[in-house]
């Protein structure tokens, strides 16, 4: 066991893969000489050189498009998009190109690439630097979508993502980078599509992603004081989705609250809820409840931002609403 920051865990995973496979390279804005806007690639430029840790101009289309082209032709890119908001500048390359190649061209192509991006709010960066756009990509057949909540998960999932032969979109919450926790020694991959029960409980299932896992665990602690024993399940990958683990929990608790930082309208949480409604309706004692951001852009000033984004007390209230 060793204690590392979330950002370091991702870095260590990338480094390990770069050491093991010369095809792996990093590409993005400010990722080389200065080690990335959030410091994730710190040290890699020095260790692997500018050939394999590529600083780019401000050209998101080129970052993703070039990565896709390189992935088709023998390389394994780990691209960084500084904020998931900027991914939209490269939406065509992600959605119309990388996601489609294999199917559209009849199954002959592989696009082994990872696109990493910071997601979520909480730093008063306002509407164009704080969105949670994961549902947008879950919607697209051909993409895998990963969203870890702990350093250990980030490490193991990053290794799997780099080894995966499909385009993997890897979300990293802005406020998690500086969270530290124990990670296991070694570099054991965590397979995509396996959820993790972050806290066992018997009374209600909270399905949460990203920073909301932490918020849900905090909520669970408060709820425990009121005699409600919540189970917190983190899917870790939004697609492929480990329905089995989630449903097993539901079958036990018979109640569910889904918590994500997304704008609630059209969210991944809605996809999760409809899955549960379709597959597990009979097992539920109460209606499905979702907690998310309000249906607004993320505002700048801290009091409004806190209000718009889901907080621990909103989760507590949501859980209590079904007791």
């Amino acid at each position: 066991m060793r204690n590392v920051f979330f950002s370091e865990a991702i870095r260590d995973a990338i480094r390990n893969e770069m050491l093991n496979d010369p095809r792996v390279f990093c590409i993005g804005e400010d990722i080389g000489r200065v080690g990335g806007s959030f410091g994730v690639t710190a040290g890699l430029y020095k260790e692997f050189g500018e050939e394999r840790v590529r600083d780019t101009p401000i050209s998101e289309q080129a970052i993703v498009g070039l990565s896709a082209g390189a992935a088709l032709t023998g390389m394994i890119p780990v691209a960084e998009i500084m904020y998931n908001d900027f991914m939209l500048c490269a939406a065509d390359q992600i959605i119309n190109q990388a996601a489609k190649f294999r199917y559209m061209y009849g199954g002959g192509m592989k696009v082994p690439m990872v696109v990493r991006m910071a997601v979520g709010g909480g730093l008063q960066c306002a509407a164009q630097h704080s969105q949670s756009l994961e549902a947008f990509l879950v919607h697209i057949p051909g993409l895998k979508v990963v969203y870890p909540s702990t350093p250990a998960d980030a490490l193991g999932l990053m290794i799997s993502s780099i080894r995966d032969e499909n385009p993997v979109m890897f979300f990293e919450h802005q406020l998690l980078y500086q969270v530290s926790d124990n990670v296991p020694d070694g570099f054991e991959p965590i397979p995509l599509g396996i959820a993790d029960v972050k806290k066992e409980g018997s009374d209600i299932t909270i399905v949460a992603t990203g920073l909301c896992v932490k918020k849900s665990l905090d909520a669970a602690e408060l709820l425990a004081k009121e005699g409600i024993n919540a189970e917190v399940v983190d899917p870790r990958t939004l697609y492929p989705l480990d329905k089995e683990t989630i449903y097993r929990s539901l079958a036990k608790t018979r109640k569910v609250v889904i918590v994500t930082e997304e704008v609630k309208r059209g969210a991944w949480s809605a996809e999760m809820a409809s899955n549960i409604a379709e597959d597990m309706f009979e097992s539920l004692d109460k209606k499905i409840v979702r907690v998310g951001a309000l249906n607004t852009p993320v505002p700048f000033t801290v009091s409004l931002e806190e209000y718009v984004l889901p907080q621990v007390n909103n989760i507590v209230d949501a859980v209590k609403s079904v007791f």
Partner: peptide, 10 residues
């Protein structure tokens, strides 16, 4: 200017 919704960048 933006009622606190925008901040420096907006």
């Amino acid at each position: 200017y933006c009622k606190g919704k925008g901040g420096s960048m907006h």
